[in-house]
Design a protein around this nucleic acid. Structure first.
Length: 552
RNA sequence: GGCUCGUUGGUGAAAUGGUUAACACAUUGCCCUCUCAAGGCAACAUUCAUGGGUUCAAAUCCCAUACGAGUCACCA
């Protein structure tokens, strides 16, 4: 019996060869320099910020080079598959508008290089495995889990290198006849790659971010096909898929760095050109004094749900992610505030080789700037869309008060130095609830300043509302009237004068206006009082005073 | 334990042998000011993990040590 016979025995129904597939999936006809990249998640968990970074980088790489960005569902680990994970991936890519050019979803296949779901590619993998067996570069291995742990324990104890190599690869030199006999006996087996590497020899690998790295050659006989479901392992699927899909650049997490020697040998064995690699650093998290990998369990901000629920503008999240990914993105963004992010000349060399801490403060800052630059109507729309999904109560209130809400959001918004009040949509209502009559049926606590005497406050308000306030007044006139009343009631209208002799007055104009602010809003910190009064109007201001009389 | 990578301020980082170690965020203070936000100004690493070495000159090159991270599954 030959290796070829053995291959036929294991895969009797596979008649295509790697060469056949070579013809089915020819080189892509793209212009020079176009990058073919992919986002290849496994549906074993929900998309997190690290995945988002990977997807975004891929998108930028493809778009900026006129290339192709495809999505491949790596579902070869059936046992760990999480329900809803795939839907969530599509939802997020859609939400952030970083859709792949080629993908397969809900029965729809877009692109010529599919299937894009690994479990549907099993025949292809088998053809490649079969070929390897037929040339004697892969073999069935009958080691049981118990034997495997035994080997590992021994290696650990005697401080040998861990793994199946050399004399530990017991099935490596089985003759085809012996192997065939055991298969026919019904023994379980995996297919292992028969490595020809030498651990004592080195080779140089060039990673696009980390530069040249010297590795020892791979000499591990790694499983390439699992028993049971007969699905390939990641390493083998990587070889087959990224070759056949003509991937030019692989963006993947740093945790893959250490399997480069294996992948290198795999590609070499088939004579395929290796794609270029961009190994991205992990996103870390500071937890007390220790720095660790960001965790889906402990860190709510790790999962992509978080940013949507909080209502961060999509561009803020993308900018934050790219800021971490590429150290000169921030500068580029500053110089090109209106360009689409995918025009950024992404440079793998500018990626940090060490892990970065994901900084929510930074995200907040980026986000504040985005929200500050939006038109009030646009912000309202986004705010409402968010509320519809995540806060029904707020949604009802703001859609009932659309005009007032837009007016409020517009306060000090236009012009070169807009207010930066909000880092996300979820935070808006807490800073504007007092504008809505509907929201006043809550526990009210007045954050008064210097003036706390109830009678005095009521006197100020009544005098002002009855004899001074006029809705027609422009801001200057409005303020002059306040000053007038302020002086009349024994307060100093000029802050400088007041500061020289504070004891000569009941208080300053700041104390005086604070009274109005607090009666109208309960808060001591609000946007411009004039605008708030304009929006509220006299009648509602009177109502607020009545509430004050009752509740203070 | 083996292999690989990393270590510049609270955070992200720039600088790739040559004056006072960019910039952004955060923090603090001052100014402006009817509060807040915004804005303006300023402070914040005498030092680039530690110890040696090379050099006229080192955060930058070399060596060692320490610490941190990743990986070593029929998981990706």
């Amino acid at each position: 019996m030959t290796y070829k016979d053995l291959a036929d025995l294991i895969f009797p129904n596979i008649d295509k060869t790697p060469e056949d597939y070579e013809k089915i999936y020819p080189e892509r006809n793209l212009k020079e320099g176009a990058k073919v990249v992919r986002y290849a998640p496994s549906p074993t968990g929900f998309m997190h910020i690290g995945n988002m970074m990977s997807a975004t980088i891929n998108y930028v790489l493809a778009k900026s080079s006129g290339g192709v960005f495809f999505l491949r569902n790596e579902d070869t680990d059936q046992a760990r598959t999480v329900e809803g994970a795939v839907d969530f991936i599509h939802h997020i890519l859609n939400h952030y508008n970083i859709m792949p050019d080629e993908y397969e979803y809900q029965g729809k296949v877009v692109g010529e290089y599919g299937p894009y779901i690994q479990s549907e590619r099993i025949e292809i993998y088998h053809a490649f495995v079969k070929y390897l067996i037929s040339i004697g570069r892969a073999y069935p291995c009958f080691l049981t889990p118990d034997e495997l742990t035994e080997i590992r324990d021994y290696q650990q104890k005697s401080k040998k290198r861990i793994g199946i190599y050399g004399k530990y690869a017991k099935c490596r030199d089985l003759t085809p006849d012996e192997a065939a006999k055991r298969i026919k006996n019904g023994e379980k087996f995996v297919i292992r790659f028969k490595s020809q590497g030498d651990f004592n020899r080195k080779f140089v690998f060039e990673d696009l971010t980390q530069g040249k790295i010297e590795f020892p050659e791979n000499d591990l006989d790694v499983p390439i096909m699992k028993s049971g479901d007969l699905l390939p392992t990641y390493h083998f699927a990587h070889l087959v898929d990224d070759h056949l899909m003509r991937t030019t650049h692989v963006v993947r997490g740093n945790e893959w760095m250490s399997s480069v020697p294996l992948h290198y040998e795999l590609f070499k064995t088939f004579g395929y050109k290796m794609p270029k690699y961009i190994h991205t650093s992990l996103i870390l998290k500071k937890d007390g004094d220790t720095i660790r990998k960001i965790s889906k369990r402990k860190d709510p901000e790790a999962l992509m749900f978080y940013y949507e629920e909080k209502g961060y503008p999509i561009m803020a999240v993308i900018d934050a992610v790219l800021t971490i990914a590429n150290s000169n993105y921030e500068e580029w963004r500053g110089n090109n505030p209106d360009k689409p992010f995918y025009e950024f000349p992404f440079s793998p060399k500018k990626m940090s080789p060490s892990g970065a801490l994901f900084d929510l403060d930074k995200l907040d800052n980026i986000s504040k700037n985005y929200i500050a630059k939006m038109k009030a109507t646009e912000l309202y729309q986004e705010y409402k869309n968010w509320a519809e999904k995540y806060n029904k109560e707020v949604y009802d209130i703001i859609s009932k008060n659309e005009t007032d809400t837009i007016k409020f959001l517009n306060i000090e918004r236009n012009g070169k130095k807009p207010r930066k009040d909000y880092e996300n949509y979820a935070g808006i209502f807490d800073k504007s609830w007092y504008m809505y009559d509907e929201a006043w049926n809550r526990d009210i606590e007045y954050h008064l300043g210097k003036i706390t005497d109830k009678d005095e406050i009521i006197k100020i308000m009544e005098e002002y509302l009855d004899n001074y306030y006029n809705e027609e007044d422009l801001e200057e006139e409005w303020f002059n009237k306040i000053k007038e009343l302020c002086t009349k009631m024994g307060y100093q209208e000029n802050m400088k004068v007041y500061k020289e002799n504070p004891n000569n007055y009941k208080g300053s104009i700041a104390d005086f206006t604070m009274v109005m602010r607090v009666v109208l809003t309960t808060l001591d910190m609000t946007p411009n009082l004039y605008d708030i009064m304009q929006i509220l109007g006299k009648e509602r201001m009177k109502k607020r005073l009545e509430i004050f009389k009752l509740k203070y």
